[in-house]
């Protein structure tokens, strides 16, 4: 029955809540029916609809890599009605999950290439699914050097600190660059906006793919900077966020021109993005 109705969520239990920043929490969830994992089979970059029953649904990107079996992670920023409610929830409580929806990061096309991830704020959440996928031992040899450039407003606003400062830098051939917008006491890392740091680092486009996600204004300047550095439109991959309700290309609100972000996106190359009307 459940599989016949794409709008009917699967029940899942929150198993762990991680405080990332003052307004971002990561929720680890497990389907009550473990069989769902066998059919769920998400790919890096896909999204899901999270239900709080009696409140509603919201589209959230899956932040855990499919290489991590038996659970899903969602990093959720408190911005509206539903996300405020979910922020009050604790391990043991139940939510609904349906999905996975959308296309995914083109990890096949990226094989053999160096990867540069550029994220801002909560925008690191969708990138993380691909970073962990690429860094997973079973996939690591398929990809070249991995660089991660990430920024947030302040050090408190950095998500996934355990990954940024611990897990990822320990991986082979992996570099992490972290920046915050304004100087603050006790911070001896880089200070400045992400696009500016990017230009400073000036990474060579040779055999490289960049994957970027963040606030619209950051994306805008990052794309400009990348073009200036000589990245071609196919070397730049981004993932978009629009208001979605159904997730399955029917409810109509996430269209950009003739495309629905929920089924044709959220991942687009810069070349594809340039063909779309500027309504995102």
């Amino acid at each position: 029955m459940a599989l016949e109705n794409p709008l009917l969520p699967h029940i899942a239990t929150i198993t762990k809540v991680i405080d990332e920043t003052p307004d971002v929490k990561t929720f680890q969830m497990v389907f009550d029916d473990p069989g769902v994992f066998d059919v769920f089979k998400q790919k890096p970059g896909q999204v899901a609809q999270i239900s709080i029953f009696g409140v509603g649904e919201a589209t959230i990107s899956i932040t855990s890599s499919p290489t991590r079996k038996g659970m899903l992670e969602f990093s959720i920023k408190k911005v509206g009605r539903l996300t405020s409610v979910i922020h009050q929830m604790e391990p043991g409580m139940k939510v609904g999950i349906r999905g996975p929806y959308g296309n995914h990061f083109p990890y096949e096309m990226m094989k053999g290439k160096d990867l540069l991830f550029i994220g801002g704020g909560i925008g690191l959440a969708p990138l993380r699914s691909l970073i962990d996928f690429v860094l997973a031992p079973e996939n690591r040899q398929d990809y070249g050097k991995v660089e991660i450039l990430y920024g947030a407003r302040s050090s408190a606003d950095l998500c996934f600190k355990y990954d940024l400062f611990d897990n990822w830098p320990r991986q082979p051939d992996t570099k992490v660059y972290v920046t915050i917008d304004r100087p603050e006491e006790g911070w001896d890392g880089h200070v400045g906006f992400v696009p500016a740091y990017l230009e400073e680092l000036n990474p060579n486009p040779q055999n490289k793919v960049t994957i970027t996600c963040g606030p619209p204004i950051m994306i805008k300047f990052v794309l400009q900077a990348l073009e200036k550095m000589g990245y071609s439109e196919d070397q730049v991959v981004t993932t978009l966020e629009l208001k979605m309700k159904c997730g399955i290309g029917k409810c109509g609100r996430c269209n950009i021109g003739s495309k629905f972000v929920c089924v044709d996106g959220p991942v687009f190359t810069l070349r594809e993005l340039k063909k779309l009307p500027p309504e995102f």
């Binding site: 709008l7 029953f53 009696g54 409140v55 509603g56 649904e57 309700k245 159904c246 029917k250 409810c251 109509g252 609100r253």
Partner: peptide, 14 residues
Amino acid sequence: CHCFDINDFNRGDG
């Protein structure tokens, strides 16, 4: 036209 919204109605007692 086929656009729709999805919402929950809550009687108050769950």
